[in-house]
Design a protein around this nucleic acid. Structure first.
Lengths: 350, 350
DNA sequence: CTGTTAGCGCCTTCAC
DNA sequence: GTGAAGGCGCTAACAG
């Protein structure tokens, strides 16, 4: 039924060892041997059993990817870049969804890391606290995506959230806005991203000498969807003194906000301008098109995979925290002139 | 270093067999034995090596998912449902991207199916022709997603594309439209979906006694993105007698069309109404919200996985072609009254 | 109900 | 340069 390495050896009249040598491009194999073996491989249509190889070698060439939910556009795009980069490195990706629940994150991390099926894990954590992540002693390498566990023992790849939010907000200020609102996730110890972005927003305001009106900070639940952005925008519009601009925690929320603004007949960007973070594809086709901070997702994917593979290969340096460059893409939502793109304010520093 | 089954056996003072029995819930194990073994497992923090188990058992509990590109919203949502359903069945999903290229589809199908890493493959084929798919003699089960290879020897799960497009178009007719355009992929032997949807569109027109003006059928490239829909819409608007409604091959194209309509100051749905297929999340927040045919994606995922696992377990029936129910979700793009949802015209027949 | 034994298919240290 | 043997960790006959 299934043709094994030893069948090839028998067919070629050589030892299994020689077949293995040919397959793995090992050592110096005599041309005659190589030809004989190759012929047998072709005739028998032989393909190595990767499972057996992995068992023997102790690693698999597969990395685990743990995401809250793959259909969320940002994660879908991230997964795409990761799969693409992995493929270039000869790796494959095993995906699982955590829904962002602490329990599931822990469970899948545990199951994956012990299964021996993956060499390492890329984790976009939402439910696990920094402390827990720090305490984690995974038996295989783990690289954190996006969220940052302060002082973690784990490698991490992401953008500088404070700086990104600051740049986005500053852009609103530069276009003459003064009552700048923010829509961010409600505070949660395990989800520092939103807190950092709020901090950046506040930093920009204070640097410009604008005061931060707490009435202009709307909170949405964790892992907000478009609808949450719409609801939050509704609340902001009902303030006695509504904003003339909004910084949104992410694109999904901003898209909901745009829908609500349209619904209420508020003109964007004339009455209110909108900016956010992630730069998902959808931003280019919202009405109006949406200005957003664009992390270099290819770079992110590559760095994460490099970090992971280097750990898999035994690298033993202290945990790294890699900051990915980003830039602000200005579009119609922050500018009367539509589709002005790519004002680059790249940031690759710590 | 790594604790093995035999270590547990030694610790518990029993045979490996008994440990295996306990782990796999095999046979009748005496309570005393079970307790002893469990204690040893806990003390040693033992976790089975799934790689070794898979090698031994001949199957892995992993299914391969081959998609053109996972960041495309429809595929992202599909992947989400698949991963979710797989998880419920105790399966994990290995994802790879084909970019829709024939060569890559063939290659990945080959590599995956021979690697012994996955028990079966879910394939959303774009580049492979029906003939090629039919000729395919994969060594592990393959279930086709979405596209239909007529007379294929492979199982298939998808919606009735003709009926879906007919229903969508009929909805436009029922709202009083008479000059109904279509945006579809340009014909390609390997991509029947668009051809079928065009057919359904034409069927609806002819059933209503409307003539099908070839000037009103715009073609876009294969795997169109939002921009392609915008461009095509632009062409339709430049016709001497522009349409008063558009049936779009999929949501992405429709979203591009909406952007172009907005850009040209054409009112939706007053001047032109728009309907499409896929019902991706984004539809609920476009401006205006987009009416779309919603395939039951959960059902699709479940059926695909059921079909696959049943094949993996050796089922030997003739190839199945499962039609998934769908319904038309009417939203603002086809109705002056916004957000009227869920007019169900479910279709589960052959 | 439990213990012993033999591979699943591969790679790799040893000898030659 | 090539051949022979052992084992990665597990499960499933086959006894007992």
């Amino acid at each position: 039924m299934t043709v094994r390495l030893r069948d090839v050896a028998a067919r070629a009249g050589v030892s299994p060892r020689s077949v293995s040598n040919v397959i793995n491009g090992f050592h110096y194999v005599s041309p005659g041997m190589r030809a004989k073996v190759q012929a047998a491989i072709d005739e028998l249509d032989y393909q190595p059993n990767l499972l057996a190889r992995s068992l023997r070698k102790g690693h698999t060439g597969t990395v685990g990817l743990l995401l809250p939910q793959i259909s969320v556009p940002y994660f879908a795009e991230l997964a795409h870049h990761l799969v693409e980069q992995a493929s270039e490195l000869g790796l494959t990706v095993l995906v699982d969804e955590t829904t962002g629940e602490r329990k599931r994150e822990l469970h899948l991390l545990e199951v994956m890391s012990r299964s021996r099926y993956v060499d390492g894990i890329l984790l976009s954590a939402l439910g696990l606290s920094s402390a827990e992540l720090t305490q984690l002693q995974p038996r295989i390498p783990v690289v954190l995506l996006g969220e940052r566990a302060t002082g973690s023992t784990l490698d991490h790849v992401g953008i500088n959230n404070i700086a990104a939010a600051r740049d986005a907000t500053q852009h609103l200020i530069e276009t003459g806005r003064t009552r700048i609102a923010a829509i961010v996730e409600r505070p949660h110890p395990c989800a520092p991203t939103s807190r950092l972005r709020l901090k950046g927003y506040q930093a920009a305001l204070s640097a410009a000498g604008l005061d931060a009106d707490p009435q202009l900070v709307a909170r949405v639940r964790l892992q907000p969807r478009r609808q949450d952005g719409a609801t939050a925008m509704g609340r902001l519009l009902s303030r006695p003194r509504p904003p003339d601009a909004v910084f949104c925690f992410n694109d999904l929320v901003a898209i909901g906000a745009l829908a609500e603004l349209h619904h209420q007949g508020v003109q964007v960007p004339e009455d209110i301008s909108v900016v956010s973070v992630d730069d998902i594809e959808e931003c280019r086709f919202t009405i109006p098109t949406l200005s957003s901070i664009a992390p270099d997702k290819t770079h992110l994917a590559r760095s994460a995979l490099q970090l992971l593979t280097s750990r898999v290969e035994g690298a033993d340096h202290p945990p790294r925290d890699i900051r990915i460059p980003y830039h602000l893409v200005t579009r119609a939502s922050t500018d009367a002139r539509p589709d002005v793109t790519a004002v680059v304010t790249s940031n690759a520093g710590a």
